[in-house]
């Protein structure tokens, strides 16, 4: 985590210098989110419309935090990945939990569909790794 924070700060510093040259305002938070997901999970068959819906839902549920939105834009521009940023890894993990990927046995060959923003208060018992979904683990 500490290393990630350091890299995050380094990235912010670098971006502060680079922003005027690359037109920071041209990137919306929503497009930053979709871009980060597509790049990070490029080896999976993703549902593009679903990613856009996820980005919209993310901003509705978690948005309105200018600091996070700013970081997402910068990370998109700088290509910061989940290994270097806990914000990026949390964004990707939440996206995958909001799809049917884990419910369909993590099959990387099939198309992955967005099924709704992951929130256990709206959909309790949705932890896809739990005994609810893996009862065979106990036999």
């Amino acid at each position: 985590m500490q290393r990630r924070k350091f890299l995050g700060l380094t990235a912010i510093g670098a971006t502060a210098i680079a922003i005027p040259a690359i037109g920071f305002g041209a990137v919306s938070t929503k497009s930053a989110i979709t871009g980060i997901i597509q790049k990070e999970l490029s080896y999976l068959n993703l549902d593009k419309q679903g990613i856009e819906q996820y980005a919209a839902d993310y901003l509705q549920y978690e948005g309105n935090v200018p600091r996070i939105e700013l970081k997402l834009k910068m990370y998109r521009l700088l290509g910061v990945n989940s290994e270097k940023s806990s914000i990026v890894s949390a964004l990707i993990e939440k996206y995958l939990l909001s799809t049917d990927f884990f419910l369909k046995n993590m099959d990387e060959s099939r198309k992955i569909n967005y099924i709704g923003y992951y929130n256990p208060y709206n959909s309790p018992c949705a932890n896809p790794f739990s005994a609810q979904f893996y009862p065979e683990a106990h036999t």
Binding site: P120, P124, C125, A126, N127, S130
Partner: peptide, 12 residues
């Protein structure tokens, strides 16, 4: 308990 793991406020 169904493993929602947000125990600070259990949804069920």
């Amino acid at each position: 308990c169904c493993g929602s793991v947000i125990c600070r406020l259990c949804p069920v």
